[in-house]
Design a protein around this nucleic acid. Sequence first.
DNA 1: AATGGTTATGCAAACGGTTGCAGAATGAAT
DNA 2: ATTCATTCTGCAACCGTTTGCATAACCATT
Lengths: 330, 330
Amino acid sequence: MRITIKDVAKLAKVSPSTVSRVLTDHPKISTDTKERVWKAMKELDYHPNVTARKLATNATRTLGLVLPNDVKLLAENPFFIQVLTGITTYARQKDYYIILTNAGTEEDEIKTLNHLFRSNLIDGVIMTVVREEDKCAQFLKENNHPFVVIGKPEETDDMIWVDNDNFQAMYEVVNYIIRQGNTRIAFIGGSEALTVTKNRLSGYKMAITNRGLHVESELIKEVKFTEEEGYKATMELIKETTFDAIATTDDLIAIGALKAIRDTGKKDILVTGFNNTPIATYQNPPLTTVEINADKLGYYAAKLIISKLQQEESSLNSYIVDTKLIQHNE
Amino acid sequence: MRITIKDVAKLAKVSPSTVSRVLTDHPKISTDTKERVWKAMKELDYHPNVTARKLATNATRTLGLVLPNDVKLLAENPFFIQVLTGITTYARQKDYYIILTNAGTEEDEIKTLNHLFRSNLIDGVIMTVVREEDKCAQFLKENNHPFVVIGKPEETDDMIWVDNDNFQAMYEVVNYIIRQGNTRIAFIGGSEALTVTKNRLSGYKMAITNRGLHVESELIKEVKFTEEEGYKATMELIKETTFDAIATTDDLIAIGALKAIRDTGKKDILVTGFNNTPIATYQNPPLTTVEINADKLGYYAAKLIISKLQQEESSLNSYIVDTKLIQHNE
DNA sequence: AATGGTTATGCAAACGGTTGCAGAATGAAT
DNA sequence: ATTCATTCTGCAACCGTTTGCATAACCATT
């Protein structure tokens, strides 16, 4: 038989209400009874039934998390598991729980989220993948479901979000490249429709300009986040123009670029990536890249949404996670 | 105001009990009322309150999952996120939920699991990391908490587990190596205390013997699952003996081996890994490795524990997930 | 018409907590 | 001794389901 609040009450010779109040550290309970109840709880090794509490308080203290279905994407990108780690770490500190599920299409995700909210399973949700004009985000907004997104959205009005300072990060990368003595620096980035790419491109341009160099459109390529695309873009660059460094927005793209450079027998072209993935670390020589601290992104995402749910006064709407240039050259 | 079972009952002109019975497809409800109730549910867009149901049925339909705290380990090893994907995929099919949390030490994990079970948050747990003489597993067993482990345990009596056939997988690897014309084949594996290493080593030995070759202890090394250890072990091998191939039990070890081979200017030494990590794919040339289908491991782990919890007759106690040799040589 | 056997549904008590409100107990003030 | 304010605790209703038991309604049988 499970130990319930009644058992504790009986042993401590108080009513269940009192035990409940002791649990929540209600101010009007005398130290005396508090101690009696604590003793009883310890003696019985009492664990409150969280489900019953959820029902009574109509708060689940649970956050939802929907991962994409694509195993390959998840496996290649440590980003997700790192975000996840950050989230669970903070949630645990605050006695919040995480329900994990997955979804394929955007509609699927909406259906899943709808179910989670409407069935009283979660109080809020953390979105790790935000598309342009994201239907999920729109759905959540329309239904007044609290959520936080990882990655600064286009429209930030009453949105809660965390992100790196992508402008600043790329600015530093390009500055580093220039300090290494390079002057013609190419840029290969993901879709320019994505805010993240936009910001990184701006950082690139600003660094170039500030150092008295010129932004040249023939040095700028837009591709998908894959090795192949990085390879192709680099091949085009090699054919079309000359350059002594490439700044990319993703390690996978960078790997492709490195391969193209090897295959064409080029030398001394500095390539930089983004995200500090293991793939980068184990390149030979290792790639210069940017640590985006994905676990911190998760950590602060959880923090923001939880303080919102707790209606804390101090609760912020956004947070910038620092980045770090990782120079693997010896 | 939320739509409850009472609202549905009122609209369908039945009692809440009847609605509840319709929900669970109780056989004694007439098709007539069933349809009336369904219509009412649809009209009100009713979603049952899962929390209330959990309380009433004393079953949470939720599985716990505890990840290690070590971000680096998680990021380098796509294994975890793949397992996770498999789990959520199956769980979703069966309307089960996954609660995710993390823990550092073994004691921490026990504490966490204890809390999850005692607080009525989960019905069962999936263990992804099983140590030798695992205290967690012992704790779960002693307290009669249902669990499944990924990785065949030493003692399999009334344990539920899934695993690859590690013997067979390594047997095939070594056969492949031999078919490529190699005869002196080294083995670098993780701790021999781990069942997984034992089984892979047996597979190695069997393949060697079956092909009429000899097992030589100077060709066998035991290390940790890191690149450095793989590097060191290979350096030792190079110093101490000769060989034309190395079978390792992990891609990271293999990467280290490759590096040692490069650094010493050796040629034509075939190195194989295990786990088919992205790091392997993006090696140059790509590593020959073994796909262990970690997502299937998760999928079947979820399947086994769920059928156990549902007390299905057909429920198995173990499942072997197939592996596949990935030859990246062109 | 009375009886009996089904079948379909409702009643009410649970599940294990929380919480507004009432009121007992205490001490201070008149 | 009475009144009042204050502090602490208990009563009972409630959260939204499920489910054992009772029973109404129906049909078939005698």
